[in-house]
């Protein structure tokens, strides 16, 4: 109530000095307006996270329960072959997606930025897959990679009968089959972000580089890319969140198969919680996912924001 009383009083006496108020009361309207958002963030994100972490230490099955189980769920989790395979797959998929989508995305953007003819057309074509959901992407690539109908069949019909390319049916390389579909879908967005970043680079810099006789690739590598740091951070966050939550692509393309060769952590969580009616185990797995994200994010945030404050 005190906060609400504040508004009419201030309206009545506009000359009231703001600097005497404590920091909390400054910009009061803005703070009141953002209160719902803050509450939602606290309750939905922080609250539910804590609730999940708490219940990962219980024996909850279909319904959440509070029977304490200690670390039993975690011990079981790390003894599960399927979880270990999931982690390995995510590591491979994640590392390669990160590298390839940044490299390919930037290269495409740089090529488009050379003032080529028909840029709009290329941009549209390359960005187009991003308009498709992961489910559609997964199905399309399931067919393309199907040995009886897809690439393999086409190449064989050209006469090269020994040709074999069926990543989705080979447990050793199935994750690369998923990677191809993921890159096809996601690289366009990275390219557009990069292109926007490149367009933001002052033309004078290019002129200066040309005057100094620096080759274009060197200008990109040593001048332009360092200047595009914020753009790279944006792309990194988008790619990173896409990696950790990859689920629908796998479901559509292989449903985790052959066997368990293309399982990913998010699918483990879903299957345990809903298919097997074992909330405790699913929560333990999702808590581990949160921990792994935190391990990457906290040092980065510390460096990023800690340094900025000093500057």
């Amino acid at each position: 109530m005190a906060a609400l009383d504040e508004i009419p009083r201030r309206a009545a006496a506009p000359a009231a000095p703001a600097r005497r108020r404590p920091a909390v009361l400054r910009n009061l309207q803005a703070k009141i307006a953002s209160l719902p958002m803050i509450l939602i963030a606290l309750v939905v994100f922080v609250g539910c996270t804590l609730w999940t972490v708490f219940h990962s230490f219980t024996t909850s099955r279909l319904l959440p329960r509070t029977d304490w189980a200690g670390l039993a769920q975690y011990r079981r989790l790390w003894g599960e072959q399927r979880w270990l395979v999931s982690i390995e797959n995510l590591a491979i998929y994640g590392a390669l997606t990160l590298v390839f989508s940044l490299v390919i995305g930037f290269t495409l953007a740089a090529l488009l930025d050379r003032k080529i003819r028909g840029e709009d057309v290329f941009r549209t074509i390359i960005l187009y897959p991003f308009a498709l959901s992961f489910i559609v992407t997964g199905l399309v690539w399931q067919w393309i990679l199907n040995p009886d109908f897809g690439v393999q069949a086409v190449v064989r019909s050209w006469g090269w009968t020994g040709f074999t390319f069926d990543p989705l049916n080979n447990p050793d390389i199935v994750i690369y089959g998923i990677l191809i579909a993921g890159l096809w879908q996601g690289t366009g967005l990275v390219m557009v972000i990069m292109l926007a970043g490149l367009r933001g680079i002052d033309g004078e810099i290019w002129k200066a580089a040309r005057v100094d006789g620096i080759p274009a690739w060197k200008t990109y590598l040593l001048v332009i890319i360092p200047m595009m740091r914020p753009v790279f951070v944006t792309a990194l966050v988008l790619i990173g969140s896409g990696i950790i939550k990859v689920y629908d692509l796998v479901v559509a393309q292989t449903s985790g198969g052959p066997g368990i060769a293309s399982e990913v952590p998010a699918k483990y969580v879903y299957d345990r919680m809903f298919r097997d009616q074992n909330l405790g185990q699913g929560f333990a797995a999702s808590t581990m996912m949160l921990v792994s994200v935190a391990i990457v994010l906290i040092p980065w945030a510390y460096l990023e924001f800690g340094r900025r404050r000093k500057a």
Binding site: E80, Q81, R82, P171, P258, G259, I260, D276, Q277
Partner: peptide, 19 residues
């Protein structure tokens, strides 16, 4: 069997039959 046990057996069998 509980769905949990069934799920674990399913996972094992999926792995066994494909590797």
């Amino acid at each position: 069997l509980s769905p949990d046990t069934t799920g674990q057996i399913d996972d094992l069998m999926a792995e066994f039959w494909s590797t």
